[in-house]
Design a protein around this nucleic acid. Structure first.
Lengths: 333, 333
DNA sequence: CATTTTTTAGAAAGCGCTTTCTCATTGTTT
DNA sequence: AAACAATGAGAAAGCGCTTTCTAAAAAATG
């Protein structure tokens, strides 16, 4: 590997001049510049990024923390972040947090020890205070799917309330009146907002919320099954079901089928997120589209602005929308 | 951020001594050692990984190249690689190749410019020669799902032929005699091996291969649909279908349903890979399990051995197995 | 006890780059 | 043509660490 010295020697200039040509910050005599460029080409010189990082205290790397890598949702997120950052010649260091406080902290420590210039996180367990402190300790942070009061700029989030509202209103419009709801864990604010939206839609239609028709799940496929079973056991009739994410919807669907129900006639089901398999389930799932890829891209752009002086437009708040497929049908009655 | 100098000063020793304590390579007087450790703790000192990398010409980072991030298969791969490497305190730099020669080369260049210590790749477009050259140019490489003659050690691969064989034999055992096949692109050797396995199973059962029952797809969901349509148009009856991956199987399934067929009665379908949505489709897909997570883990361990002197057992060849779900059924006839 | 061998600590030289500081060269102004 | 301001190039310091080299102290040997 040639170094900047060899380039300087071959071009017959000092290494400062080579550096200037390479970085294009200061002006350099045209002749010398060409000589340097020639030497660079001839030696096939590539600057050593480590040395560069040491000298200018910047690694051009962004740490990304996600709960897991092998879920479609986070795959979409990663894909968007990687491609946005990559096209700005930054690189992504990934780290997984498994939705657990200890692991998330570890992961962040790890990324810090790697001298990342910034962090993009989908952190579920870390406290607001921790994130705040992190951001203040000189390490800029972008937060996906999270609202931290003290860091409004850093947050990129979805109007979950509206999503919940859209799901339920859709069912209402189809004539359903008895709508069950399987929610996400109530320590997650997105889950709470989605439920709020459901309530608002109901209220708007002048319908009361029957607590018997709400099951508190944990976003897992398994809890979709359990939830449906439990709801049916409560013996309050319902003709439609909103699930706070697609995994639970999928669980509910297969459970319903195992129960011998015919979908969507016996039960209309709406999911949330529109992950990749939403159209693989049968019947294809009507669901709320979570624009995670755009949100992820935005988080990357925010960092590009904040740390590398770019000037992208960044949108902090995203609106979900509904995609109607075959898992919901008009209520006849 | 405190530096090693401050630690040395506070401990009243030279920075060489601090370095020795930190790296534990040379022996250090117990008293001094304790003083250093105390100073480290008091200052909350963390070595600067960039400076360290520059000094010892090692970044503790491994570049990972995958075709895409937002597909379950590669999510599984990444997850396994990341966790294996992370527990050895190495970090993962990801880069996507989109299954395209140019992009893959770019991605590799990018990873090289980042001074990765090694590369783990699921490269589809890069030529054997290129990979060979890469590996020889001092940058160790691990190859997932690929067989490069000249680099037997670096390859971690699956017995695709056996997978194809298992799929077809399963159908044969269920009494099917007319078995169609939607293959992957024939410039990919895994696709070819899978097809070979299909042929062997047929031959073993004394059945001829009818070329009319083979459709050449490209692994996409869309080609699953197109393939089924095309096969049916050829008017050679078949009661079962093997698809060279789950995406095509899923496409075929929804197409069959759109055609009004009742699955699995009218058509038994087998997939390949067992990606996450294989049990979301309806009927749940009988498929060949591709142990991609284990393979990925193995590739990471191989690198850990090769570059960082660890001594893990590494297995280079993996066997697929069949998981029978509800998309296949006995042929009555 | 003198001498050799082994341990152990510090000084200093890198690793490959960026950047400030200095000074020479050119161009501009009166 | 003299005085000044720009401009551009090189020298050198520094980023924070590892590691070799050297030398002193400790231990082992005769």
């Amino acid at each position: 590997m040639p170094t900047i010295y060899q380039v300087a020697e071959r071009a017959g200039v000092s290494l400062s001049t080579v550096s200037r040509v390479l970085n294009g910050k200061a002006s350099v005599n045209k002749v010398l510049k060409e000589r340097v460029e020639k030497a660079v080409k001839e030696l096939n010189y590539r600057p050593n990024s480590v040395a560069r990082s040491l000298a200018n205290n910047r690694t051009d790397s962004i740490g990304v923390l996600v709960p897991e890598l092998n879920a479609p949702f986070f795959g979409d997120l990663m894909q968007a972040v990687e491609s946005t950052l990559r096209s700005a010649d930054k690189h992504v260091i990934i780290s997984v947090g498994r939705n657990c406080l200890e692991t998330e902290k570890d992961a962040v420590e790890f990324l810090i020890s790697r001298n990342c210039d910034a962090l993009i996180m989908h952190a579920e367990a870390l406290s607001d205070d921790y994130l705040l402190e992190l951001n203040q300790s000189k390490l800029p942070v972008a937060l996906i799917n999270r609202q931290v009061e003290a860091l409004p700029d850093a947050c990129i989030s979805l109007d979950n309330e509206k999503g919940g509202y859209l799901a339920t209103r859709h069912l209402l419009e189809l004539g359903h009146k008895d709508i069950a709801y399987i929610s996400g864990p109530n320590d997650k604010c997105d889950a709470n907002f989605r439920l709020e939206g459901h309530k608002r839609a109901l209220a708007e239609a002048g319908l009361p919320l029957n607590p018997e028709l709400v099951f508190n799940g944990d976003y897992s496929e398994e809890d979709g099954k359990i939830g449906l079973l439990e709801l049916m056991a409560r013996d309050v009739p319902f003709t439609a079901l909103v699930c706070a994410n697609d995994w639970m919807a999928s669980g509910a669907i297969s459970c319903a089928r195992d129960l011998g129900m015919s979908l969507p006639h016996d039960l209309s089901i709406v999911g949330f997120d529109d992950v990749v398999f939403a159209h693989h389930v049968f019947p294809r799932l009507t669901t709320v589209i979570n624009p995670i890829a755009q949100m992820a891209e935005m988080s990357a752009k925010y960092i590009l602005n904040k740390v590398y002086g770019q000037a992208n437009d960044v949108q902090h708040y995203f609106e979900p929308s509904l995609v109607v497929r075959e898992s919901t049908i008009k209520h006849e009655g």
